[in-house]
Amino acid sequence: MTFSVARRLVAEGLGSALLLAVVIGSGIMGQRLAGGNVAIALLGNTLATGAALVVLIWMFGPISGAHFNPAVTLVAVLRHDLPWRLALAYPPVQVAGAVLGVWAAHAMFGQPILQVSTKLRGGGAQAFAEVVATFGLVAAILGVSRFRPESTAMAVGLYITAAYWFTASTSFANPAVTLARALSDSFAGIAPSSAPAFILAQFVGALLAAGIFGWLLKPDTTP
């Protein structure tokens, strides 16, 4: 089934909004209920995000591809899975949807809608963690969609659930998510001054994965 450009863009925007509502909302809820235990708050944030990703990809994947992520969109273009003209429209919609999702989470929890994060996430280690996180995310998408496409949603959700815990940055792995989370002074926020390094690292990780898995997944032409 083919969907119009308008429907694809609405799917990307709505999916991004719901994803950020989950990320920010579960972070706020986790922090409120954890009684100061950061590990418990992070666990709640992790499980909600991973589960939501699976559902959102199942919901919107058949319509738009369920990227919700400019780095994933870039890789899709480089692999000729998405035309440039459509790809240029995806990131603004992803970012706008993500910001709306942040504001929706603030509204649900009775917080000021407009915020700016003060949570610094600086340093080379965290930037490198974002390279690793995004590399793994794109690798999961490319590898699983090639051999077990019906399992892609589950693979992405499970990978992000794991990456929240094994990366020093808690695996943002998404430039749109990073920009939106800079607008929330909550558990899941990131200070605007920390965002550029994260975003650069995310694109680097995505491009590395695209290059390596483009080679790995290419069928051999010699016996």
Rank of each mutant, 00 (worst) to 15 (best):
residue 111 Q to K: 12
residue 83 P to W: 14
residue 158 L to D: 00
residue 51 A to I: 11
residue 122 G to W: 02
residue 178 T to Y: 04
residue 55 V to C: 09
residue 73 T to W: 00
residue 112 P to C: 08
residue 137 L to W: 06
residue 127 A to C: 08
residue 85 R to G: 08
residue 135 F to Y: 14
residue 166 F to R: 05
residue 73 T to G: 03
residue 58 W to S: 01
residue 121 R to E: 14
residue 163 A to I: 00
residue 147 F to R: 13
residue 99 V to G: 03
residue 57 I to D: 00
residue 180 A to F: 07
residue 168 A to T: 01
residue 170 T to Q: 13
residue 153 A to F: 00
residue 121 R to G: 10
residue 92 P to V: 07
residue 155 A to Q: 00
residue 107 A to Q: 12
residue 110 G to T: 02
residue 93 V to H: 05
residue 146 R to A: 15
residue 178 T to D: 04
residue 113 I to R: 14
residue 140 A to C: 07
residue 101 G to T: 08
residue 166 F to Q: 06
residue 85 R to I: 14
residue 71 A to K: 06
residue 153 A to C: 07
residue 135 F to Q: 01
residue 148 R to L: 11
residue 53 L to C: 09
residue 162 A to H: 01
residue 121 R to K: 15
residue 160 I to C: 04
residue 102 V to K: 02
residue 56 L to A: 10
residue 61 G to F: 08
residue 47 L to P: 10
residue 169 S to D: 02
residue 57 I to Y: 01
residue 178 T to L: 06
residue 142 L to Y: 11
residue 55 V to K: 03
residue 135 F to R: 03
residue 175 P to A: 06
residue 129 A to M: 14
residue 138 V to I: 15
residue 180 A to V: 03
residue 161 T to A: 14
residue 120 L to V: 10
residue 46 T to W: 06
residue 122 G to I: 00
residue 123 G to T: 09
residue 52 A to N: 08
residue 76 A to H: 14
residue 90 Y to W: 07
residue 133 A to G: 15
residue 89 A to K: 07
residue 121 R to P: 13
residue 109 F to P: 05
residue 161 T to F: 13
residue 76 A to F: 15
residue 111 Q to E: 05
residue 161 T to H: 07
residue 154 M to D: 06
residue 70 P to G: 08
residue 152 T to H: 11
residue 177 V to W: 01
residue 129 A to W: 14
residue 58 W to N: 07
residue 100 L to V: 13
residue 69 N to R: 04
residue 109 F to Q: 04
residue 161 T to K: 09
residue 165 W to F: 09
residue 178 T to M: 04
residue 116 V to K: 05
residue 88 L to K: 03
residue 74 L to H: 13
residue 71 A to C: 14
residue 118 T to P: 00
residue 158 L to V: 07
residue 134 T to D: 10
residue 111 Q to H: 06
residue 46 T to P: 03
residue 70 P to F: 08
residue 71 A to T: 08
residue 90 Y to R: 01
residue 120 L to K: 12
residue 67 H to K: 07
residue 95 V to S: 12
residue 61 G to A: 09
residue 53 L to R: 05
residue 51 A to R: 04
residue 54 V to S: 08
residue 117 S to I: 06
residue 100 L to P: 08
residue 48 A to I: 13
residue 67 H to L: 05
residue 109 F to C: 11
residue 154 M to S: 12
residue 55 V to G: 03
residue 122 G to F: 05
residue 97 G to C: 05
residue 143 G to C: 11
residue 79 R to D: 10
residue 91 P to E: 04
residue 105 A to W: 10
residue 148 R to Y: 11
residue 108 M to F: 15
residue 80 H to Q: 14
residue 119 K to G: 04
residue 172 F to N: 11
residue 112 P to S: 07
